[in-house]
């Protein structure tokens, strides 16, 4: 869907992105996280084709954004951290202008505007001037402008910034709906709990380098369309009593670990974590094996790791970022 290859972006006195490479799966929601100055906004601007990297390439469905940004813009919606709206126009005019500017045919402007307004729950705002709308409503109008041409990729830089908790929760619901509509989302935020509600993947940046990009085993990830695919899963099994037949379990390449009691002896454990590459069918088969083998399964399910925990683990595991390897031009 989106492939970022060896991306490098330099500001006059320091590199902002160094050798960043990843591929976003279609239909995923990726949380882009990292400390201030990590290069998140720069990465988003490169992906949106608004900044030309020093080297590397970004491809969206095979089209090189870095070579032909205007062609790629057709399939990208982008919302900046500090977005702007035409305050003197009504929400209708804003959406119609955005639609026309993004190539929606004149005959379809009204239908498309109304459809997006309904999707974002801002139909009642349409006749109002934008300056009269609340922060949350303005946010939705801005998102409406970004998605009005039905982009395949939506890039959102700190979309929940400045919103109250209710508006943030509402925004999370909106992102889930957009994902369900087939849009791939890349969202940056400092509020990890907010990202957790809808992210399926996590991309960690620090000092311009990509620390990690991986699928999350969060609630949102397991509810996502990607849940059925084969991937590394961590399964928590809680038993009513210890089970002596763990060695009989047929599970290729799996790693088993006793959680309680903290021991390497699985036969004593009532809480075991199984890490294996599974799809949904494999996970079901695993449960069936346990039950048929006589294990008294009290609880069985994929481990839910919070985004914050994942992020902290990624940062902790990451090597210290090297100093800038490029000489400043001035």
């Amino acid at each position: 869907m989106l492939e970022v290859r060896s991306l490098r972006f330099d500001y006059p006195n320091h590199p902002a992105l160094v050798d960043v490479s990843f591929t976003l799966a279609a239909g995923s929601v990726t949380a882009l996280v990292g400390p201030n100055g990590a290069g998140k906004s720069t990465l988003m601007r490169c992906i949106a084709g608004l900044a030309e990297p020093l080297s590397g390439a970004v491809f969206l469905n095979g089209v090189a954004i870095t070579d032909n940004p205007r062609l790629a813009h057709r399939d990208i919606g982008y919302l900046e951290d500090e977005f702007g709206l035409y305050d003197e126009l009504t929400a209708t005019q804003c959406l119609r202008y955005a639609a026309a500017a993004r190539g929606v045919a004149d005959a379809d402007l009204v239908v498309r505007t109304n459809a997006v307004a309904a999707q974002l729950d801002i139909t009642h705002c349409l006749p109002k001037r934008v300056r009269e709308l609340s922060r949350g409503q303005r946010q939705r109008v801005a998102i409406g402008q970004a998605i009005i041409s039905a982009p395949k990729l939506l890039v959102l830089d700190e979309p929940a910034s400045g919103l109250d908790p209710e508006a943030r929760a509402s925004l999370a619901g909106l992102f889930k709906r957009l994902q369900a509509d087939g849009i791939t989302l890349l969202v940056s935020s400092h509020i990890l709990t907010e990202l957790e509600a809808y992210s399926t993947h996590m991309l960690v940046l620090r000092a311009g380098r990509m620390i990690e990009y991986r699928a999350l085993s969060t609630v949102a990830a397991s509810a996502a369309p990607l849940r059925a695919e084969r991937r590394e899963r961590s399964i928590d099994v809680i038993l009513q009593a210890p089970w002596p037949d763990w060695s009989a379990l047929i599970l290729t390449g799996a790693q088993l670990r006793a959680i309680t009691p903290e021991s390497s002896v699985l036969t004593d454990a009532t809480h075991v974590q199984i890490e294996a590459e599974l799809d949904d069918a494999g996970q079901t088969a695993l449960l069936q094996q346990l039950v048929k083998g006589g294990a008294q399964v009290l609880s069985f399910g994929e481990t839910r790791q919070t985004l914050a925990a994942s992020y902290e683990q990624s940062i902790a595991d990451a090597p210290t970022a090297p100093t800038a390897e490029i000489r400043s031009p001035q």
């Binding site: 949106a48 500090e82 702007g84 955005a98 993004r102």
Partner: peptide, 16 residues
């Protein structure tokens, strides 16, 4: 005004 009003990038990304 487009630049300071943060609407310029929206125009840059349009098909205009």
């Amino acid at each position: 005004d487009e630049i300071t009003g943060r609407t310029w990038n929206q125009q840059r990304m349009s098909r205009l």
